[in-house]
Write a protein that binds this DNA or RNA. Structure first.
Lengths: 204, 204
DNA sequence: TTACAATATGACTAGAGATTCATATGAATG
DNA sequence: CATTCATATGAATCTCTAGTCATATTGTAA
């Protein structure tokens, strides 16, 4: 948790620092990211950095919290109240759609989370034992889908959840690692959902 | 490319060094991996390391070559001659199956490749511009599937390829990040293929 | 045995980056 | 003002590791 000093800062300065942090962590994995670069970019002295944060990890944890919170805010409105009202596949569509929207609105944030996924050790330090929260989320969703009778009961929830999570990372990649930020969300989502619902087999 | 000195080494010693490298790179991303640790583990002096390799990257590149070659050897026998003989989904099954077998036989190798994927810069240095070879592989396979009439023609090959690649990483995860090394390959593959072919929707 | 080449070694160097610290600035208080 | 408290600063320190190098050892061929 950042020190009080940080929260006492004028908002403009705080934002400058967080922006600098985002720039650095979006382009470098945690261990490659440099405190010096963040300080320079934010226009503060290196020493000041340590007035605000315990250390590099402290800032990173705080940033991740912000990212998760922001990402959640994209899901909530459409989903939370919707459960029960919508069917499983509609929910799933909403989840991916909010993922796309989040990624498009915050192109620098998504890569930070994805990079973190590949540093299991750091991930654990930040989110605790559960190796991947999103897998768990999809697993629950799938089980709900089974109850509803929407998902084939023989599907292995854990495996399918891993697949769905893997696909959502693929989605992020598709959108901007490949520069398709301008594609219509609906077109992409429809494609994905079609594949997930019906598979890729040509039916006779 | 390692120096001649390395290839002149007795096989036993060469293997000791590669084993040590695998241990280090399997547990640490490239930049975190320590030459010192590799030398210690292999029981050679640090200076010797530089008799054998230009630098850390030299060893890593060489190791990746070995891994790719080994992985290829799992695919080839079943697949290369099979194209034409088998249908698209059979080919896909073979691909995933060989992926599983490779991962099971070489539990420490797969993570090395997966970690590399998240270091785009290093990846490019090693494999050149193409950001992800496996995506490209799946794209070609899908296009072949379309020609065959097995894959629905409206499927976006690039998106689907990313999804398939994402799923194959998920598969590796499923198998040993979760400790299911003992699961029957066929059961897992059947699940996955079923999902990919038919989706997860419960048909009425 | 001697001389030469190839290989082995670990102390040493260089550089990078995180973190600390003594000092400076400045605002608020009395 | 003088004093205190919060914040700012960047030079100095500390740690870590890649990579070098002068020296020692081993193997070999004459």
């Amino acid at each position: 948790m950042p020190k009080d000093t940080f929260f006492n800062l004028p908002e403009e300065k705080r934002e400058r620092i967080m922006e600098a942090a985002i720039d650095e962590f979006a382009t470098h994995p945690f261990h490659q990211a440099r405190v010096t670069a963040i300080a320079e970019e934010a226009g503060i002295a290196k020493g000041s950095f340590y007035q605000y944060f315990e250390d590099k990890k402290d800032l990173f944890k705080y940033l991740m919290e912000q990212i998760v919170e922001k990402k959640m805010s994209y899901i909530n409105c459409n989903l939370v109240e919707g459960k029960g009202k919508y069917g499983f596949f509609q929910l799933l569509r909403e989840v991916y759609l909010s993922g796309i929207r989040f990624a498009k609105d915050n192109p620098r944030l998504a890569p930070i989370g994805i990079m973190l996924l590949s540093d299991k050790e750091l991930y654990r330090e930040i989110f605790g034992e559960h190796t991947d929260k999103s897998v768990d989320f999809f697993r629950q969703l799938l089980e709900y889908g089974k109850e509803q009778g929407a998902v084939h009961p023989k599907i292995d929830s854990v495996l399918a959840a891993k697949m769905l999570a893997g696909m959502s990372y693929a989605l992020v990649d598709y959108i901007y690692a490949d520069g398709r930020l301008d594609y219509d969300d609906m077109v992409i989502i429809d494609q994905m959902l079609y594949i997930i619902e019906n598979g890729i087999k040509q039916k006779e």
